[in-house]
Amino acid sequence: MSDHPLIRLAGVDRIYTRGNEELHVLNGLDLDIQKGEFVALMGPSGCGKSTILNLMGAIDRPNAGQVLFDGEDLSEMNEAERASWRARNVGFIFQAYNLMPVLTAVQNVLLPLQLTPLPRAKRRAQAELALQIVGLSERMNHYPNQLSGGQEQRVAIARAIATDPRVLLADEPTGDLDAKSAAAILDLLQELNRQNGQTIVMVTHDPKAAERAHRVIQLDKGRVVGGHAA
């Protein structure tokens, strides 16, 4: 692992406003993620875990501080630049899978590939390879409502890795799954990290899931309150 952080959050504040009330979710947070790391973010609800993921993925902006990705300040990009940056660098995995119900598995995986300069045939091959990696080659023409929860999450992972992103951001990826499916998804994430050196940042409430990571970061009230190697 390199000493140079892939992602650095430096003195980050994030404040949400609801009506007249200000909600301080992150308070001067400092956090580094190294390239090739598998990091689990844990903590009670509302501690800012998902907010950190949103900031790392450039779908939210800090009120103060910097979010640096390989030295580049994400806060300084406009919306179109951030969209383009996300397409190139980040794969998202959501708790609720967030697949397009009107598209088949392979069509869902093809969506982010449409944003790459790859030719059509290559995109198709890449999507099929991603589905093969997650073990769903046989179900690539199924719609999400024809798949189990675990299979849907596998498709979501295939979509996230199809463009070969530099970091995978997973928000409670096993939160909606039964124990067996959850274990299989965690096996898959672990394998991606081990075999491909894929950097993964995962938010979880589940200590068993966190055990799969290299490092567990404990958060509370918008601050890092502890961390250890898993």
Binding site: I59, A83, S84, W85, R86, A87, N98, P112, L115
Partner: peptide, 15 residues
């Protein structure tokens, strides 16, 4: 609405 969020997350621009 949610699909719009997903598309934007994947990197499709607001435009």
């Amino acid at each position: 609405v949610q699909e719009v969020g997903i598309l934007k997350t994947l990197g499709f621009t607001p435009g």
